[in-house]
Amino acid sequence: MAIKYNEKVVDHFLHPRNLGRIENPDAEAVVGSPACGDQVAIYLKIDPETEKIEDIKFESFGCASNIATASIITELAKGKTIDEAMNITWKKAVDELGGLPPIKYHCSVLAVDGLRAAIRHYLMKEGRIKPEDLNSDLVRGELYHVIYPPLGVDIVSAKRVKYIGVEDGVVTIDIAFDEEDPYLDEIKHEIEEKVSVLPGVKEIKVNNVGLGA
């Protein structure tokens, strides 16, 4: 099957909205790294009274789907309260773009992560999230954003996450993939990347228990 981008994706890629930086932002986050392929930076101005996102800007070292999703995310988030913005999912962003090829879903997740990480930084700065709040539900919440590319489905929904343990900041995650799966390294990498942004995480252990376990 040919993998193509639709017109709306191409439009957002060529003419990204809200591109750039905000001087003295109320919150910012850089997620991903060039080493993993993509990197997105999100900058926020938040009204302390209403907690609405007054302004949002982004930068991206990434492919077309990464840039397009980041662009649409900024449109979706602008004017929303931080609670509402926290609930914008990658699925919502992809739908808003009129769809992406499933193999590219994982690129779209990064922009959503960036927005959530920026909001989380804001909440931490305000003292509303503390390191001791870390628990397996928060970890699972992050794993919903790790996509298994061949299926275009996150690893939790695909039932590939077998166990999540949290003890003294040490997060243990058991996943179930074929040892020969060509995406295994990428998945492990993404899990570490996503979970490491949670407050209070000191160490992440990802074990592949294999299929059939």
């Binding site: 890629f13 060039p34 392929g37 993509d38 990434g62 492919c63 077309a64 990464n66 840039i67």
Partner: peptide, 28 residues
Amino acid sequence: EGEAVQMYFDMNGIVLDTGSACANPFLQ
């Protein structure tokens, strides 16, 4: 990033390849 560069050249009618993971089916 290479895939974005490749896309831009493609839109200008120029065909080339990239070593980016984004353009690789196994994301490597």
